[in-house]
Design a protein around this nucleic acid. Structure first.
Lengths: 244, 244
DNA sequence: AAGTGGTCTAGACCACCAT
DNA sequence: TGGTGGTCTAGACCACTTA
């Protein structure tokens, strides 16, 4: 491998490694080739390989373990809680939610969902509705939409019986690694259906969270709308580039 | 400089550089010594200096400019908008708010504010209330509390006549660089005073944002509560470690 | 003991900025 | 032209894991 004059060599190496991961040959938690192997394969120094991997580690795509190797980051429940779960009890404690699946349908995508997921309007999607319990109480309603093409053969049973998080399921069953997400938050009044499911009065203020989850090359994986009851829980956001 | 056996050398160097910046000898936008100078001063290789600076750049404390030097990050309006301003119009466009100062008082700190700011209860604070306009309409109410000890001699005129953001004022007048912030979001119903100031009906759902802003060594700078009207604007959060 | 990533060094050369 | 940071190399040695 050599630079084409425009891009630094380590950026080329980073892209090459990303393509290997993106192709799905490597599953979550699997080791990638060692730095020495990569340096020989690409014909560059180990320092250049390290710089490419440094960036992928900073982006949480890879995990390095001294003495063991470098691995495609597994979407373990622990990692999920650290990186993609921002809902915290007001006393500061964090909990893993209990999920009750309320509905699972295969339907054609409406125009807005199609645009969000980057698929043609009318293409098949799965729509999943969940009620999430925290501290034994219903606190969140989730409405999840994913493309059937990306998750072929997914069934309601997969969702109900999974022993991991939703993103862990995407990775372990379909080799789809969620790497980033974008949340848009606003305050809304509870509609009758939501109020009933959450056990609160009509028009109670709720925190609405619209999320798009992305995998490699910023391909959309999931569009999700959450409604959060913020009497005992709130949404936390750390405005810092490190030490999450 | 040499390692004490427990910490890597570049971490020691990073700490030493941080202390120089934290002492306030270097103002926002000022250059720090060159990599070569630092390498001679600390008696380590340039590579080690670079690794220390790499981390400080990743944390947005420093900014490197090829051919010019390395600088303490200035809290320019542009940077603020990128890193500490998460309120976006629903069509995706970003605006700089117009600020109207509604109140400026020097008062003793209540227990909760004292705890948040890390000062003794009863110590003097400034409390500033602002109304923020976006698209010509009132959209946000801000309630800011800062320690008088950290901002000696601050006056209402400073706030009203400033030609920069609030964080830019902290840095240019008092050498206080805001480096991180933590936001806690919840949905609340508009109380009578807020409803009147924002020009909406009583009990309109509002997005409440409680922020703590921190400087070097995680010292608290500011405690702020914002109330955001989310009919045309929303709060954006990117769950990713890079490319903000 | 062998293999992995982690740290540190020394130096070459390049790209960019100021003057 | 001289000085800055940016890239890339080659190699030594250390810390940790696995067998």
């Amino acid at each position: 491998m050599s630079t084409d004059g425009s891009r630094p060599l380590y950026k080329e190496v980073k892209l090459a490694i990303t393509r290997i991961l993106s192709a799905g040959e490597v599953g979550g938690g699997d080791a990638i080739p060692t730095e020495k192997q990569l340096s020989e394969r690409f014909g560059v120094s180990v320092g250049t390989i390290r710089k490419a991997i440094d960036e992928l580690v900073a982006e949480r795509v890879l995990i390095r373990q001294q003495g063991r190797g470098t691995f495609l980051a597994p979407l373990s429940p622990e990692r999920m809680l650290n990186y993609f779960w921002h809902i915290v009890r007001k006393d500061g404690t964090r909990e893993v939610p209990i999920v009750q699946t309320l509905g699972f349908q295969g339907v054609p995508a409406d125009a807005e969902t199609a645009a969000r997921l980057g698929i043609p309007p009318g293409a098949g999607i799965f729509r999943i509705r969940n009620l999430l319990l925290l501290g034994g109480e219903p606190v969140i309603i989730d409405d999840i939409r994913i493309a059937q093409a990306m998750f072929p053969g997914l069934t309601e049973a997969d969702f109900v019986s999974r022993d991991t998080t939703v993103y862990g399921l995407y990775q372990s069953r379909f080799n789809v690694s969620v790497l980033k997400a974008f949340d848009r938050l606003s305050a809304v009044a509870a509609d009758p259906a939501s109020a009933k499911q959450l056990g609160v009065a009509l028009s109670t203020p709720l925190l609405q969270i619209d999320r798009i989850a992305l995998t490699f090359e910023d391909r959309p994986v999931e569009s999700r709308r959450s409604l959060l009851l913020t009497d005992r829980y709130e949404y936390h956001n750390a405005l810092t580039s490190e030490e999450h």
